[in-house]
Amino acid sequence: MQKNKMYDKEKVLAGLTIFVIIVTFPFWYNMGKAAPAPEIKLSDKAKAAKVCVAPKSFMTAEHMQILDVWRESVVRNKKRLYSSLDGKNYNMSLSTGEDSCIGCHVSKADFCDRCHTYASVRPYCWDCHIEPKENK
């Protein structure tokens, strides 16, 4: 018996090859192409307004929670008024009217979808709401 002899060498090496191919999946799938984060395009109206209903860092991370709270408040409790921290009042609405979310962030493709596609998030807002017509 030789020392360090591998038994069933072909099978073991084939198995290890499959293992390496599977665990290195993200490395070869992207083929080293850089994938920078998408830039969201703010509409002119949003740029002019300068402030959203909450600070930007909060909105980036928590907007879904705000929408969830708003939905509950409007649908269950008939309360449509949102007072922001800086004392302004807003109408709680995703897509109805000029002062709704979509009223200011007019383009779903430029504003919502860029990050959602990048992060592979598929919110179900538009299962019920009507998607805004893109004004190109």
Binding site: N30, G32, Q65, Y118, A119, V121
Partner: peptide, 18 residues
């Protein structure tokens, strides 16, 4: 809650060697 876009930028940087 974290800024998921920045996180993905970092993780993508790792696997694309950038």
């Amino acid at each position: 809650k974290v800024d998921i876009i920045s996180v993905k930028e970092m993780t993508m940087g790792l696997v694309t060697f950038h």
